[in-house]
Design a protein around this nucleic acid. Structure first.
Length: 888
RNA sequence: GAGCCUGUAGCUCAGUUGGCCAGAGCGCUUCGUUGACAUCGAAGAGGUCACCCGUUCAAGUCGGGUCAGGCUCACCA
């Protein structure tokens, strides 16, 4: 033991070994707890008692799946730490606990990374074609796919890797297809030609949520289409005016009242159009000339006006970012930028330009590549969101889903109230190909340049179904010879299914496997005795379950999840959509609680960025200070939804804390065994159950036991309320400043077996500790829980006060006789061991590695400790209540 | 334009439904320490809790307003 128990905690040399021991032992799989026998207050409890108590309810967290080819960053470290704390805590509480890991295929992100890589090698994706390119992406995935999960392991994540999922797995892909089909059949998915956000660089449509707005300086040009046109318009994008079919003015604008309803034939640099003057309240009289050139095809507002006024939609910019033939011979094929220059010089030369003005406006850009968005009409697939949003909103309103912190519920409602249909098709190759087949050929996506705005509102699918009847197949078994839609689904579509697709939905949903809930309510039955049972029942889906890696009842037992933990930045992208899809497809919200953490910033609260050079690489930190230190640094001081400042000095402080845990425990281990270890023995008595003799407690003993008890109740309360920072802080403070600074120092005296002293070695410090404890009790006690820690006889406590401290305190030693001093040091050893081991358990969710290392050392002295701290029992807060309910 | 959040010690932040003589870590000052730990200990300095008004026996905490910083959403061409 001595060689392992070195003077300082060697995180680097131990963490990976410890992790692989855990993983090999299978502690991350929820079934490990089911075979356990419980003994509480000397009574045996069967597994059935246990499951009744919990209503068979497991604790489940679906991981926010990182990009499969991604690299670990501090944001990952944040969510892994928080989720691991919850997972380990609930596991220690004895609940069947499942944290499902997995990765996301990350459509555009992965495709463009591989594309870039191939280009460097001189390979162009359009030349090698779809099949070959996808092979390359899969190769890339095989090569780099394991990296992120290995790195997540280094953070100590106790996920059940045997259930690891990838969004493009067979199982998940079939969930995606099934979800698409179901929604299509319900009329919640439709195809239509609508104006979408087109990213010319990604070469794909993107959803409204993927568009960001950047403030920019722009030029506003004032001009007329031609000399004969009566109204001057203002535009920042004169090149789009080639597609104008109307001019909109405010109905209250006196200047233009007389023109409303009239039509004009105009000719703009050779392009002839009919322009109607329409009235729309959205037009600001004060902006520009108060007259807006309406370009239905290339502006979302204009599109809406066109819908309302039955205007012609003329697409003058194509998906390639170049002007189409509709823009006229002079402009066809020009880039948007060139077209703008050309038309500006035309307007100037023709004497149509009246003035230019510098203004500030917002530019819509792609959130991935920052490329300016080109709005254009395109034939795409959409999810009709309003019906989904209504239910999703109710789930939060009713409290079925709780969002922490609460203020995000407001943002959530606002988003739901203002929701628009979700464009889910992407013109990419990497992803879930849309499960739709067409009878004729794949070129259904004709370049329609002259389109009437589809009258069909979202949700009304009859019209489309009629037109598609017999020509479109949606599902997994297409008729022979039909052609599949070339597009793939938005990555967030599969992410939205994550909490249930990872568990086997829809293959193992109730209607597919019957309802075995009553029989298989607790998976311990599956694990312990059911392999045979399943075979005996020759259960038909078993083969499927084996090939997909699910157990048949995962979905029914583990769904819905308990907590969904992630950063607030993807509340809408991911969380909101999961709630919508979960309710629609499974009939229940996919989780009960949403915990949103803040973003990690540098120590001066600046955003981490490469250009500032303040990026913290979690792997570097782990190498330098250890995982435990990183985890504490991330969690302490972080309140939900609030960004947290993390710098090296903070993490260094928690490295010191890890070392403190190590050394305090080292002290206990060495002193308790007196360096001369006989297993199970303490001095003259056996350790057994650490039955502390209450009659010979010293002042210090009493004090530390009280603070210990207080800490237990505080920590549990905080953890139950998702107050991880406060729990971590309370443990830190107690361990360092009471257990180590006060009690260990006092224990040094009490352990002098020959001639122990009973007076406090440092009465001032003890009094100080006591005062602090009382203050905590007084200020925190709401329900009277903490009062249980109050002293029975306040008078006795006077002896703690400094002025009385020199008094002989042997009275507090009860019946202890002068010649019988040894029991005190034995008792001290037991107290040290007891409170240390309990504290280690509470610390374990925060600092899993050092606590496990120390635990293993303590097992040498006290073999009754569980074989791993991971599967220990959370210390009971009170003696009167047991956490296992007996039915008799 | 709409909504939300933040403003507490030099720095980064805690402070749960109002009861604090206002806390932590880092930093700073002084002292100590060969025996678990210099990755340590003890003592200490440092705050009109942004500002103003109000509710209350009591306000960092609740209400109204002002100022400052930040975030989200949004069709100002």
């Amino acid at each position: 033991m001595e060689n392992i128990f070195s003077k300082t905690w060697d995180a680097k040399g131990n963490e990976e070994k410890i992790y692989s021991t855990w993983e090999k032992a299978g502690y991350f799989r929820p079934e490990i707890k089911f075979s356990k026998q419980y003994t509480v207050n000397g009574k045996q409890y069967t597994e059935e008692d246990y499951s009744e108590d919990k209503n068979g309810k497991p604790f489940v967290i679906p991981i926010p799946p990182p990009n499969v080819t991604g690299k670990l960053h501090i944001g990952h470290a944040m969510f892994v730490t928080l989720e691991d704390i919850m997972t380990r805590y609930h596991r220690l509480l004895g609940e069947p606990t499942l944290w499902i890991p997995g990765t996301d295929h990350a459509g555009i992100a992965t495709q463009s990374v591989v594309d870039r890589d191939l280009r460097k090698k001189g390979i162009k994706k359009n030349e090698i074609g779809r099949e070959k390119f996808l092979e390359k992406v899969w190769e890339w995935k095989e090569k780099y796919g394991g990296k992120i999960t290995r790195q997540i392991r280094r953070l100590g994540a106790s996920c059940d890797w045997s259930r690891e999922r990838f969004t493009l797995d067979d199982g998940l892909s079939s969930s995606v297809n099934e979800a698409f089909s179901l929604l299509y059949k319900k009329g919640l998915i439709y195809r239509g030609n609508y104006i979408v956000n087109w990213c010319p660089r990604c070469g794909s449509a993107i959803s409204d949520d993927e568009v960001e707005h950047r403030a920019q300086k722009a030029k506003l040009y004032y001009f007329k289409y031609d000399k004969s046109f009566p109204i001057t318009i203002a535009s920042t994008r004169p090149e789009t005016k080639l597609g104008d079919t109307a001019v909109a003015v405010n109905p209250k604008d006196e200047r233009y009242k007389e023109f409303i309803g009239k039509e004009y034939r105009i000719e703009l640099d050779g392009v002839k159009r009919t322009v109607k003057i329409i009235a729309d309240r959205a037009v600001d009289k004060e902006f520009g000339t108060g007259a807006l050139g309406v370009t239905p095809a290339h502006s979302p507002i204009d599109w809406k006006m066109a819908e309302e006024n039955g205007l012609e939609v003329i697409k003058i910019i194509g998906e390639d970012g170049k002007m189409t033939a509709q823009a006229g011979e002079k402009y066809k094929g020009l880039s948007v930028k060139d077209a703008r220059e050309k038309i500006i010089s035309y307007l100037n030369n023709a004497g149509l330009m009246e003035k230019e003005e510098e203004i500030e406006n917002n530019l819509a850009v792609c959130y991935r590549c920052e490329t300016p968005i080109e709005p254009l009409p395109s034939l795409q697939w959409f999810v009709s969101m309003k019906p989904l949003a209504e239910k999703a909103k109710k789930a939060v309103e009713s409290g079925d889903v709780k969002i922490i912190p609460k203020r995000f519920e407001k943002e959530y409602f606002h988003w739901m109230d203002n929701i628009r249909d979700w464009c889910i098709s992407r013109q990419l190759w990497w992803g879930h190909r849309i499960p739709v087949w067409y009878k004729r050929d794949a070129k259904l996506k004709v370049e329609s340049e002259k389109l009437k705005v589809d009258q069909k509102a979202s949700g009304a699918s009859e019209a489309l179904e009629a037109s598609e009847a017999g020509n479109v197949y949606v599902g997994e078994n297409p008729p022979k010879g039909w052609t599949q839609d070339p597009d793939v689904l938005d990555t967030w579509f599969s992410s939205a299914l994550w909490p249930f697709s990872t568990l086997g939905w829809p293959h193992f949903a109730e209607d597919k496997v019957g309802n075995p809930k009553s029989e298989y309510r607790n998976p311990k039955q599956i694990r312990n005795s059911n392999d045979q049972k399943l075979e005996a029942n020759s259960w038909q889906l078993k083969a499927d379950s084996d090939s997909l890696g699910f157990t048949p009842y995962d979905y029914q037992y583990f769904y819905p999840a308990s907590v969904l933990e992630t950063g607030y930045d993807i509340l809408f992208f991911w969380v909101a959509r999961m709630i919508m899809m979960g309710i629609e497809l499974t009939g229940k919200p996919p989780f009960h609680t949403v915990y949103l953490h803040g973003l990690v910033r540098d120590e001066h609260n600046r955003k981490m960025s490469k250009s500032l050079g303040n990026v913290l690489d979690p792997l570097d930190i782990i190498d330098e200070y250890g995982t435990d230190a990183l985890r504490m640094g991330l969690v302490v001081g972080a309140t939900p939804g609030q960004d947290v400042a993390v710098g090296k000095s903070k993490i260094k402080g928690y490295r010191n804390f890890s070392n403190k845990i190590w050394n305090a425990s080292r002290f206990v281990a060495l002193r308790v065994s007196d360096g001369d270890l006989v297993s199970g023995e303490i001095g003259s008595s056996k350790i057994e159950d650490l039955d502390i003799d209450e009659n010979i407690l010293t002042d210090a003993d009493r004090e530390v036991l009280k603070v210990h008890k207080l800490t237990k109740s505080k920590v549990k309360e905080h953890l139950d309320k998702f107050q991880f920072s406060l729990a971590g802080e309370a443990l830190y403070d107690y361990f360092w400043h009471t257990f180590a600074d006060v009690y260990i120092e006092e224990a040094k005296e009490q352990l002098l077996g020959e001639n122990p002293k009973y007076e406090a070695r440092n009465p001032t410090r003890l009094a100080y500790a006591r005062a602090k404890r009382e203050q905590i009790i007084n200020s925190n006690d709401q329900n009277g829980i903490l009062n249980q820690v109050q002293d029975d006889d306040p008078k006795k406590l006077k002896s703690y006060l400094p002025e009385d401290a020199t008094r002989q305190q042997s009275s507090s030693l009860g019946g202890l006789q002068a010649g019988n001093l040894h029991p005190v040091s034995d008792n001290t050893k037991k107290i040290l061991l007891k409170i240390l081991s309990e504290t280690l358990i509470m610390l374990h969710p925060f600092v899993p590695f050092v606590t496990e290392a120390v635990w293993q050392e303590l097992r040498e002295i006290y073999p009754k400790l569980s074989e791993s701290i991971m599967i220990a029992e959370w210390p009971l807060t009170t003696t009167s209540t047991t956490r296992i309910h007996r039915t008799d």
